[in-house]
Simulated scan of single mutants.
Amino acid sequence: MTGPDRPQVPLTGGEREILTTLLDYHRATVAWKSGGLTEDQARQVHLPSELTTVAGLVAHLTLNEWFWFAVVVDGEEDTWAEKLEQDPDAEFRVSPGTNLETLLAGYEKQCARSREIVAKHSLDDEVTHKDETFNVRWVLTHMIEETARHVGHLDVLRELTDGLTGE
C-alpha cells in the first residue's frame, strides 16, 4: 500500500478553507486506512461488539455524510429514520454482497455531494431539523469530529488486521 494522498491543511487562511480542507484530510485518511484490504479483512471482527469493522465504519461514515449534509443542511427526506429506529446500528451491518471497493466508492460519492452542498451555503446559514437549529459551521465542525474519531478506530482496526500503522 502506498502512502496517503491527502490534502495539505492550511495553517492560516479563511475559516471555510481550513474547515473544509480539514474534513477532506480526514475523509482521505478514511480511504487510505480502509483501502487495500481483502473482503475478509474489511469484515474482520476485533472487538466484542462485532459491529466495529472497517466495512461497517465506512458504511457508518457514508450514512453520516448523507444525513448531516443532505438531510440536515439540504433538507432531503430522512429515509433511514425508520431503519435506525428498529436497529440503531443498522448502518454498521454491511450485507455480504457489498464489497469494500463499492463501499469506498459510495463514501467518496457521498463526500463529493457533501462538498457541493456546503459550497451552496454560508457557514452562518441556519438549518432546522427536528426542532433543532444548526448553522453550517456547526455541521462541518461536527463532521470533522465524527470523521476524525472513526479514523482513530480505523487506525486501530487496520493495525490489528495487517499491521499498517502511520498517521
Rank of each mutant, 00 (worst) to 15 (best):
L140V: 01
I117Q: 01
E39T: 03
F134L: 08
K130W: 07
L164D: 12
H150I: 00
D162N: 14
H60I: 06
G56S: 11
V54W: 13
A119Q: 15
F92Y: 15
T141E: 10
T98I: 14
V9P: 00
L154E: 05
H26T: 04
T2C: 03
E159K: 05
G163S: 09
V156M: 14
I18C: 04
L157F: 05
L140Y: 03
E50M: 09
P7T: 11
K83R: 15
D124S: 14
N99W: 04
V139C: 10
L23N: 13
L103V: 02
T38V: 06
T53Q: 05
I117V: 15
H46K: 06
V118G: 01
L164H: 09
L19E: 08
T161L: 08
V136F: 03
G14S: 15
T12I: 08
G166D: 04
T147F: 07
L140G: 08
H46R: 10
V139R: 00
A90C: 03
R6C: 05
W66E: 08
L63N: 10
L63Y: 15
L51G: 00
T128I: 11
V139Q: 06
R6K: 10
P4Q: 02
P10F: 03
A105N: 11
G56F: 10
E85K: 13
C111V: 15
V45G: 05
D125V: 05
D5W: 02
L19Y: 00
R149Y: 07
E15C: 03
R16H: 00
D89E: 14
T79M: 05
Q44I: 02
E91F: 09
Q8E: 14
A105V: 07
D87M: 13
D78E: 09
T165P: 00
T128Q: 13
E126I: 03
P7V: 12
A119I: 10
Q41W: 07
T161G: 07
E159N: 12
L51V: 11
V45W: 03
A55S: 13
D24L: 04
H153C: 08
V30H: 06
T12C: 02
L157M: 13
T12A: 10
Q110G: 00
L100F: 03
L19K: 07
V45N: 03
V9I: 11
L103D: 02
R93F: 08
T141K: 05
T79H: 12
G35E: 11
R113T: 14
E126T: 15
N99M: 04
T128Y: 12
T20Y: 00
K130P: 02
L37E: 04
G13R: 01
W80K: 04
T165C: 07
V127Y: 01
L51Y: 00
G152T: 06
E15K: 14
F67T: 05
L103P: 00
S114G: 03
D124Y: 03
K33T: 06
V30W: 04
T20M: 13
L57Q: 12
E145W: 07
P48H: 12
L57I: 15
K33Y: 08
F134W: 14
F92T: 11
G56P: 00
H60G: 09
S95G: 13
K109D: 15
R137D: 09
L164I: 08
K83C: 03
P10L: 01
V151Q: 05
P7Q: 09
A112R: 12
G35L: 04
E101K: 01
K109P: 02
V45S: 10
T53C: 10
K130Y: 11
H129N: 13
